[in-house]
Amino acid sequence: MSAQIATDAAPAIASYNFAYLDEQTKRMIRRAILKAIAIPGYQVPFASREMPMPYGWGTGGVQVTAAIIGPEDVLKVIDQGADDTTNAVSIRAFFAKVANVATTTRTMEATIIQTRHRIPETKLSAGQVLVYQVPIPEPLRFLEPRETETRKMHALEEYGLMHVKLYEDIARHGEISTTYAYPVMVEGRYVMDPSPTPKFDNPKMHRSEALQLFGAGREKRIYAVPPFTEVVSLDFEDHPFEIQTFDRPCALCAAENVYLDEVVLDDSGGRMFVCSDTDHCEDRRAQGHRGEMAGHPLETAK
């Protein structure tokens, strides 16, 4: 995370500043990040820049990463838990090119993990930074479209509306059917949208040792959850918050209590459930864990 002007750190592309953004922009973003850390869960406006990728591809997360990354950092990028999807591969390659940093797929080795919609299964530790790509930062948006009004509601801690949404879920579906972007209360003060991660990951945010930063490029907002911060999922006394459960372990590594993806195998209804966190799955298999379908060559599963 050392911030240095490194005009010659990336000699292959002399026309770019280190980590793509110019230093003034990085400073501006860092100020926003510092403010966000100082007020956990509060959405800090920032002057989001045009990035060489379309909105929706993680421009907010990329700007946050660019503002905090230093030459010594090791970067991991995941998309829905996987290191090998287009978005993850492109962003990893982007920073390898413009910042010349080391990249990894291993959660333990990374100092910065940029993520789209998952928190790694491996417990994060002090010193690591998790950077979330956020499409819509405002948790109140769907019930109150006026930004002036939602900001006032945050300022005055008027969060009855959040429970209106949960009430509607229960009234319609018999339970709180929100399964991702499940709203949380941060440090007993601000209601926050944890980005479209599955609610399965919400408990991992609570008192996490790692710093969590959230960047929304199109919406021009940055917010943060500093280490060891209280993050509580909203619920009702008689409908307490619950995470998803899976009735079988990972087909490849036999892991239980992890978030699983469904993978369709063929045209005749064949399917398997595997870890969404690919690094976690590979790690376990390397340690010798075997799931019920682990005998199949991986190629057929793809």
């Binding site: 509306l161 209106v164 009702f236 006394e237 008689d238």
Partner: peptide, 13 residues
């Protein structure tokens, strides 16, 4: 129910 939730009622039933 909104006003009730706004003043802190948290029991759906």
């Amino acid at each position: 129910g909104e006003r009730l939730m706004a003043v802190g009622q948290r029991h759906y039933g």
